[in-house]
Design a protein around this nucleic acid. Structure first.
Lengths: 360, 360
DNA sequence: CTGTTAGCGCGTTCAT
DNA sequence: ATGAACGCGCTAACAG
């Protein structure tokens, strides 16, 4: 019933050699007569041999697997980061484990330890909420870890982080240039680094424009539904404070901005571009909705690729004189045109670009 | 430098027993004096022991890993399926490998074989484009495989599939009830099962309403951008055929529908709900855009959970008298209220619900 | 150039 | 109730 997996011993027997010879032939190690090598390869192909990566990992103490931890796949931000990580990993013959945390720090630690048990060669964490606790974990198990946009402070772990403050500043400059003065802020209650940096950019921008950052509310989550709720709270506060709706709303991200627009429209406040709404992320949606979103383009996939490249360079550093991939051709396409020297830096700051989609 | 992983031998030495005893103690197998058991567990905890899942997998011939293959994570549909699969897998102490295919059948076979090499216990493939080729793969390696919404025909593999024809029929009934007659169809060039089923529902719906299904175009991809291009082609055809824009457009999915709306708006055809647009999927976006989308709710996450449950039941069937999870408490929360008997069926048909968001 | 021996860390017989 | 011996499939160190 159960087809037996064929191993190097099986092919050794057929080819009339010993297992180690087969192993060497398959990986192109050590010189040997082309005759036996060809025969071995033929037999292997004929029998449909596939190496057991578990056994190989056990003896090499290297699994050629990496783990990716994200809060959720439901957020397009993390989906696209995952896409970048997966692409680069696959092209380099690494397999990718994924786990989600649902923003729960305890669960984040849990899945991280689970990955340790799998003996992955490295871990990437997007939007981590535990930050420096990876410090000891990385040291104890000497396992490379790279963080993407950590929401908790982390000073010692290699990081790929987006320049949220810079991006926020670009948005504020734009809004002020458009002549807006009553600019409200909408953040999220999760209170991570992204929230704080963007809010700081809003507040500083207001002050630089001679204004007071006086109206700010936080919505429950960084989703469309969150933005809807947030707008419902923001509007009455604005009417009370200014006796008028805001001229502009600086939203935490594109999803909340879309939710805000939906609520404002229902309340009758969106008629012809009455209120300027800005997002953050530049999702596909941002260009398709009405009014189209002015936002900051955050290169999500590229950040995933960058994190994976950084992780690979850290992994390679731990396995000095071993070749990288047994029985694989080394040729693999280089995809992302990223400055090689960036990988040397412990922390990589990724700039965002302003995308203007409204005149108002 | 490299902290040595501590193994059951280490803890055996400290506790003054032999490795097998430690192994049994850790997994609660075979009765033994509570005294030694407690001591062993204490030592294990003290040393921070974590079992090597690679070694365990090697000897048990079972990795407690499953693989998930999707076309891309950039499509929210697959992201949500992945979310469901990951949740159920994690709750049952399975780790999840993911790979993307970018809709390339060759790459799909490639990553599938890569998962075989990892000796995963099973594979889930969403929107497969190779279909029955998993038949032999599953038989040769007797590895359970479950397909979600396969785009190619597959008769023999267990499948979780959405009732696209039924959903499409609901949409058509609604559109006809609204009095629309010039109803155009927009599909995708990838020509999968989803496309054909939905298109068939459109055509049948038209004929049932005494109309002729005469205007249909396919856009390049099932994305927002694809919908934008498609609309640009559809509009002139409609003007030629009917000397008027369509009264309604039956779109392949929500993303293309959003793209269609964006293009029609730019062309000045969306002024007050002039054209009825329907989607398919019920993404978060569908409710937030203007006009809100009438669409079919497809329970994406639940389909992922269902596929994982089906896969687990198939896996368990292959390991008869072994317990499921070494040294883990069996308690785990049941999340989805799905009829247990459904899992027995080879092919599971998931119905969709009509979500009406427009009066027009 | 090739075969022999020895583990990687764990689970499973058998003995005792 | 517990220990000795073996094997999972593979690579690494030596032998020849």
């Amino acid at each position: 019933m159960a087809k037996k997996r064929i191993s190097i011993k099986d092919i050794a027997e057929v080819a009339g050699v010993s297992h180690p010879t087969v192993s060497r032939a398959l990986r192109g190690r050590g010189r040997m007569s082309d005759q036996t090598r060809e025969r071995i390869l033929d037999v292997a192909k004929e029998l449909g041999y596939a190496p057991s990566l578990m056994a190989r990992g056990l003896v090499m103490q290297r699994s050629f697997c990496v783990g990716l931890i994200v809060p959720t796949f439901l957020d397009p931000f993390h989906s696209e980061v995952a896409q970048g990580v997966e692409e680069w990993a696959r092209q380099h013959h690494y397999s990718l484990f994924v786990s989600s945390t649902d923003l729960d720090p305890a669960r984040e630690m849990e899945v991280a330890h689970s990955l340790l048990g799998r003996q992955v060669d490295g871990i990437i964490v997007s939007s981590s909420r535990v930050g420096d606790r990876y410090q000891e974990m990385s040291a104890d198990s000497d396992m490379p870890i790279v963080l993407i946009n950590p929401e908790a402070d982390s000073t010692q772990i290699p990081t790929v982080v987006h320049d949220d403050y810079g991006g926020g500043a670009l948005l504020m400059t734009h809004l002020l240039q458009q002549g807006h003065r009553k600019i409200a802020h909408m953040g999220v209650m999760t209170q991570g680094r992204g929230h704080h940096e963007r809010k700081r950019a809003w507040a500083d921008g207001m002050r630089n424009g001679g204004l007071t950052p006086e109206l700010s509310v936080d919505c429950p989550t960084g989703s469309i539904a969150g933005g809807m709720h947030g707008a419902a709270q923001l509007l009455p506060k604005a009417l009370e404070l200014w006796q008028a709706p805001p001229e502009a709303i600086f939203c935490y991200n594109d999803a909340t901005a879309i939710g805000v627009i939906a609520t404002l429209r229902q309340a009758g406040y969106m008629a012809p571009d009455a209120i300027a709404i800005t997002g953050f992320d530049d999702l596909d949606m941002a260009a398709a909705i009405d009014p189209a979103l002015t936002t900051i383009h955050q290169p999500r996939r590229e950040m995933g690729v960058l994190a994976m490249r950084k992780l690979l360079s850290l992994i390679d550093r731990m396995h000095p004189h071993k070749e990288m991939h047994p029985n694989r051709e080394n040729a693999m396409p280089v995809v992302a045109p990223i400055d090689k020297s960036q990988l040397e830096r412990a922390s990589i700051l990724v700039p965002g670009n302003l995308v203007i989609r409204r005149s108002a």
